[in-house]
Nucleic acid binder design. Structure first.
Lengths: 337, 337
DNA sequence: CGCAGGAATTAGAGCGCTCTAAAGCAGGCC
DNA sequence: GGCCTGCTTTAGAGCGCTCTAATTCCTGCG
């Protein structure tokens, strides 16, 4: 910077003003500085700038696992908005371990990033609260009560309702659910399923097959359903991976989808829209989650305001794995056609 | 730091030594400093450290698109090794545009990262060369001649050979190829396919259906094959997405896979291993690519040495979409059994 | 012609750390 | 006791920038 100033015949401070594109610099000097900088191949040092100005135009993002496309897409949403606004992303993955997650978080705090976005963190609430005291923090996909932290959440109840509405509308009554275990989203979808079945007068048809968020759980569930003899007319899978396993398992046994059984997934990951699957599922607005998280973060940093919890609405995507149940089709024919 | 020093009754320099875990600090003072730091909630400032020490323990990663799982997994590989070694990742995505890619690269250079990994960059070679002159740089998935830059590449020729060997071994002769267009990997696979068919005496059976790396290209190719009347006995798809489209298209027409047609994909993405697909494909070691890229980067920074180009070997994953061709099975029966 | 007042420019003190070089402090040997 | 050796500790000068406050330069108006 010193060199640029000398080359342009101005002071160091003026170079700083030009580099930061501040107003009140005469056009003539601005050009002189810009020329000098180009001539010398000058590149500002973001570290020094961050140190002196106490802000970095960088936000930290911690996610559970980069290789999980679901999280990667949320990060993609953050990235998209960040690059529009000229922010950088300092990214870390916890590798599914609370311990490493903590280490990553600590590193981000050392960088004095302008804020941190935690995507489905596994670490204890107390640690999150401690970090939130040091820097603006947004939580995505996990809610924590009594902590002054912005949250971006998906309305799981609504998503589950969409599934049940869709199936009931088609005429289904015997609707089973393969659940997602204790992982985030699993318990909510399960309990709303049970509640929703009751609310629709189908409580006695409720049937939960325990599982987790993997394809294997779906395969196992398919076997269990087949072994039990009577199949439900529809299955609500905890997510698309489970639905994929289910589809594979039923397929192998010669069960037709949606002819014999309708299947609904959850998440709308890549596989769901492939023609070979064409899975009816619930879409979660992942990009939007990422963008919104960053928006809340920056807004929070600039304005002192109480915590905000944003609930995003998922949507139903109708594809080919759902249709009316066979029996109902027959029954609904006019009696004496 | 000043405060910690005062609290511990030592000099600022000693605190610095302790925080960096340098040897030659007496156990007694070390503990005094550590205690004081904990008591005051002291957290080192990575910016200041980077400024003073001229190194950041941070590497930059630029990828084409975070939402593409293929790239995300490479980044995952980098991240895994980085976090083992205590490095941070500054991540940016080019959003499929050379212009934005350039902006991201410039930002990373301003951060004075210890090195930069470019994953399948779209920008011109000259710009990459210019960046490489400023900082250690590793190129993944793209080779550039005459530039002194380390590269991590996949041996596309070998991957293609594996496909052809596998199919020929099963008895296939009429093997078609849906190509990947001009995107990275496409031209290599295509030309090696043509060359390999000739080398195996099957040159006249070569058939290339133009496409790109999307599911749609696969669907179109399926239609084209069906319309042409005679189906090949096997199809080598440019990647798994194309294979998925192909599978969907053939499936809908009642063509059996692998009974009537065998299909081989490329990449081994998530969908390939789902039971519902069970796609025979070529696996690319994505995590390994990421890890290796970071290794080369750090090694290059520490040792002056000529450029290194590492070729990683893909492997064949045999699943359920390949089998012997029907005709051949009949023909190879003993004449007078 | 002089001066108020706003715009443009600059001096200089940090930001929080590392690094070099020098100082302090033991112990061991002659 | 003097002095060398090797370890531990410290002083103090930056790293490259921003920021505040002060200074200089205009322009217009009484």
């Amino acid at each position: 910077m010193e060199d640029v100033a000398r080359e342009a015949g101005v002071s160091r401070a003026l170079v700083s003003l030009v580099m930061r594109e501040r107003p009140n610099v005469s056009a003539e000097r601005r050009n002189r500085v810009l020329d000098a900088a180009a001539r010398l191949g000058y590149r500002p040092n973001a570290m020094a700038r961050g140190l002196a100005s106490r802000q970095t135009r960088t936000v930290g993002v911690v996610l559970d696992d980069l290789r999980n496309p679901f999280f990667a897409e949320i990060a993609g949403g953050v990235e998209a908005l960040a690059s529009e606004l000229g922010y950088q992303l300092l990214l870390g993955a916890g590798g599914r371990q609370a311990r490493r997650e903590r280490a990553v978080l600590a590193a981000l705090l050392e960088y004095r990033v302008d804020g941190i976005i935690l995507v489905s963190p596994r670490m204890p609430a107390a640690q999150i609260a401690a970090a939130a005291a040091e820097t603006p923090l947004v939580l995505v996909g996990r809610a924590i009560r009594n902590i002054d932290v912005d949250c971006v959440l998906i309305d799981e109840e609504h998503g589950t309702d969409l599934v049940l509405d869709h199936l009931v509308e088609l005429g289904h009554e015997r609707i089973a659910h393969v659940d997602g275990g204790r992982a985030p989203g699993g318990p909510q979808r399960r309990s709303r399923y049970l509640q929703g079945m009751r609310a629709r007068g189908l409580g006695r048809n409720s049937r939960v097959i325990p599982g987790d968020f993997t394809e294997e759980a779906g395969t196992n569930a398919a076997n269990e359903l087949l072994a039990a003899g009577e199949l439900p007319t529809a299955v609500f899978a905890a997510n698309d991976m489970v639905a994929a396993g289910l589809l594979g398992g039923l397929d192998r046994a010669g069960v037709e989808v949606p002819g014999d059984v309708s299947i609904v997934g959850y998440d709308n990951i890549l596989i769901a829209h492939l023609a070979h699957f064409s899975l009816t599922t619930i879409d979660q607005p992942r990009l939007e989650m990422g963008r919104l998280a960053l928006q809340l973060l920056l807004d929070r940093r600039d304005n002192r305001r109480p915590r905000e919890v944003r609930l995003l609405e998922p949507t139903l995507v109708r594809r080919s794995t759902t249709g009316p149940p066979r029996a109902t089709v027959a029954v609904t024919l006019p009696p004496a056609a």
